[in-house]
Design a protein around this nucleic acid. Sequence first.
DNA 1: GAGTGTTTATTTGGAATCTAAATTTAGTTC
DNA 2: GAACTAAATTTAGATTCCAAATAAACACTC
Lengths: 400, 400
Amino acid sequence: MTEISVATPQLLRRVSAGAVLDFMRASEAVTVTEVMEATGLTRATAIAVCEDLMQRGWIRELENQRAFGGYQKGRPARRFELSERAGYVLGMDVGVSKATVVVSDLRGKAIGRASQPFAEAEIPAEERIAVIDRTAMMALHGVGASPDSVLAVCAGVAAPVDRNGEVLVTQHFWGLFDVDLKAALRDRRGWTVLLENDANLAALGDRWRGAAVGVDDVVVILASERLGSGVIDGGRLLHGRGGGAGELAFLDMVEGVGDTYGIAALARTWAAVALAGKAKTSLRDFAAEGVEAEQVFAAAANGDAVARAILERLADRMARVIGAVSTIINPELVVIGGAVAKSAGVLLGPIAERLKEYTVTPARVAVSPLGDSIVTVGAVRCALDYVEKNTLDLELAVPA
Amino acid sequence: MTEISVATPQLLRRVSAGAVLDFMRASEAVTVTEVMEATGLTRATAIAVCEDLMQRGWIRELENQRAFGGYQKGRPARRFELSERAGYVLGMDVGVSKATVVVSDLRGKAIGRASQPFAEAEIPAEERIAVIDRTAMMALHGVGASPDSVLAVCAGVAAPVDRNGEVLVTQHFWGLFDVDLKAALRDRRGWTVLLENDANLAALGDRWRGAAVGVDDVVVILASERLGSGVIDGGRLLHGRGGGAGELAFLDMVEGVGDTYGIAALARTWAAVALAGKAKTSLRDFAAEGVEAEQVFAAAANGDAVARAILERLADRMARVIGAVSTIINPELVVIGGAVAKSAGVLLGPIAERLKEYTVTPARVAVSPLGDSIVTVGAVRCALDYVEKNTLDLELAVPA
DNA sequence: GAGTGTTTATTTGGAATCTAAATTTAGTTC
DNA sequence: GAACTAAATTTAGATTCCAAATAAACACTC
């Protein structure tokens, strides 16, 4: 599509086509009459737009119209449908120890997935990129999709990313390498790569298909190993100056902790301490070392006193964090996400109870059902957002 | 202007007119050629649009073109200019004890002002409205403007206001009366009234004409009597679910304070405590009661030890607040605003020094030059934003 | 002061896009 | 097969844009 700088008559078609496309994304097969009703366009225009979009490859016309619908009379309507396989998007979760890639069609259906570990935590940048690229190619190959058909890629990383997708502050492992993933994948595959903070993607993901569906003001806390959060206000992600919005490290100043550990990390640590100290009681069921967070939750469920004390402590800590967030951000809902979320349900009650002590505007608290795929789900959503916003500027590999 | 639901040819003119208007708002008298260069439109279209806007009354054509510019050759260009007096906006600061109203032209120039005290803190709603209305009429009368020429009104109140301008949570004095200012002024005067939290308006104001010009990620703390803040991220105000975003009451959980006092309130209180306790030393210059915050700042400047200790304490407290904000919101700049701002400059150094202890992403800190007019300045900006966004849907009282 | 050059205003023609209304097409119902 | 229905297509008219040509107003030079 040609670029449009000022208001030219072509802008109209652009607007109309966007409206029709939006409607089709939200529907199954549709008739022209339905398009007219949804968009307010006249029949002539609606048909012209549909034909336009067909030629570009974004939608297709169905055969066998008779097979559809329960209508009886009159000339049978043509039916159009989003060509959900006209292209694909990739959602990536680039963690410390592994890379995960999800292939999604244009309706957001995940149709492929691949995951590959990094050999070690501190491998060189190009090797890291090679692993990521290989994982992406594996995932694409698994669904028989060509790299040319990838319309956008979104990658989540555990570093602050500003709203332009730049990693400014070097932090954690990422800064050590400063892998320029955007340039690398653009050069190798010609892909458009969007970078985003993993907690921010978790927020997008959970708002799309998690506990926060339909909620415009929500904070999603990735709470397993470290605490980080993605903040959505009025449906928009908060970034801050350098992408650092949503950091929760101010807990340090309350408890003097050196870093912001998440639920799983703390459960493990506190359990290990309790075992080492050989306090009066229990945690009998655990091996003396290598205690896993899930074991602590399980023991608490079985009535183990020490484990329950740990959960109490966890709940209080989370209530403090959520209380502070509730006060300053005032979300409607706070979601606890990440791998630990499936266990964290038992914390909801205690957290809600204590929350009132720490804020006068307590948010609802929930756990995300998305588990550890919360970041890739968000990455897919982010890539789809880009594609949906830029559809009419994108060219498909196979238009006709 | 007729409402447009779908993409009709009139939409084009709308877009073009908007672009021309935006350019004219940012310029003095302009020629058609300048409009062409700024908007990309052709001469014919630019002229048509200008004539359109003239007919609606938003711009005017200048006589005596010869008088302008340093150009020499060719046919003299017609010159157009924003009709900055085509209508007015009102910016209101509705405080606990008084109401202030500023009249502004369409270029944002304050041309009138009036202020009226409320007889007592707890007067009935209708009386409160009557005072506000009377203040507005006084301000308008002062500049010879008719109520019909008011295009929008924005009022700042010390209560949470959500992004739709609704006061949800009843809080402080406001909730006691629940004055429905929007409906009252609409019914009485036919005005469109936008409600907004006072700290949010302070943020808009300071970003417009204060210390935060050009900064997209900024937090403005109204810090005189109570602490409240307005958060702007990516140029957009944060509201949260019920308009409560920007509350800073989580300090409570650090120091066990019952409410969130601001700088002036604390300076006064701590000074009074020091005097009552008759500690070892000084504050000699103050009367034993009725200590004012400014006196504390003045005494500190003169080397008074107790006063300096109070400032140290204030700086530490502010550093904690700003530290927490810096971490979770990550703004580029934090501005201290309100009446106390002019004295608070001496705190900037100590605050910046301590800030590093409380966050790893410290923001720059500044004081606002807007003093206690920061809220009305923001209210004017907010009302202008509304007018500028809706210009083509508004009708002027005197078009031709 | 007549000729030349520059800049702007105005007019004309053409293209894209929308709406609205009339006409054709393809099927159902009786 | 005639009447009816709903969708598709065609045609006409309006709006708005761009592009190019023409006209006007002024300055500068000789």
